[in-house]
């Protein structure tokens, strides 16, 4: 069996570091928004909190070994990609629903489009490291 790299080593080290930066900043930002001015844009701020949660889960799951963490990471990164595409598209056509910026607004333009690139790299990396753990597509042994 050819050795796939571990998820948290090699390029994964860098990827998880960038995820951690987003997890930290999104969490802090959402906390401030909700604590200080939730009434101004509840939908946008709830979305901020949701995005923060997705980044936190993705960071932790990518960093931890094991097939379960891999599945969690895959789910989180997929949700992240859908989130940035959906919110990006909605805000591009009708910014009215989101009066205040979220990390995913306009495909993450406020963050140098890193939020758009990150889930793609995350999915690619999960693919590269697939054989490092038991294949999740196989039914579990009983």
């Amino acid at each position: 069996m050819s050795e796939a790299p571990r998820r948290s080593s090699g390029p994964g080290r860098l990827l998880i570091a960038v995820y951690a930066v987003f997890a930290l900043s999104a969490t802090a930002r959402a906390a401030v928004q909700i604590a200080t001015r939730f009434d101004e844009a509840p939908l946008a701020y709830l979305l901020s909190a949701f995005a923060a949660l997705v980044y936190v889960v993705a960071t932790v799951a990518l960093a931890r070994p094991g097939a379960t963490s891999r599945r969690v990471a895959l789910a989180a990164v997929t949700v992240e990609l859908i989130g940035v595409l959906t919110v990006g598209t909605v805000t591009a056509f009708d910014p009215g629903d989101f009066p205040d910026d979220t990390v995913w607004s306009l495909y993450g333009r406020g963050y140098g489009f890193v939020p758009l690139v990150l889930p793609v790299l995350g999915l690619l990396w999960l693919r590269r490291t697939r054989s490092a753990e038991p294949d999740v597509s196989e039914p579990p042994r009983r």
Binding site: S9, G10, P11, G12, R13, L14, I16, A17, V18, A20, V21, L24, S25, A28
Partner: peptide, 27 residues
């Protein structure tokens, strides 16, 4: 955040004995 980012980066970087560890310091 500014206070914790460099120590955290260092912690995460040092466990990786390759160029990718150093790249964490850049970020």
């Amino acid at each position: 955040m500014n206070l914790i980012i460099v120590p955290l980066g260092l912690f995460w970087a040092l466990a990786e004995k390759s160029r990718w560890g150093t790249s964490v310091l850049v970020v």
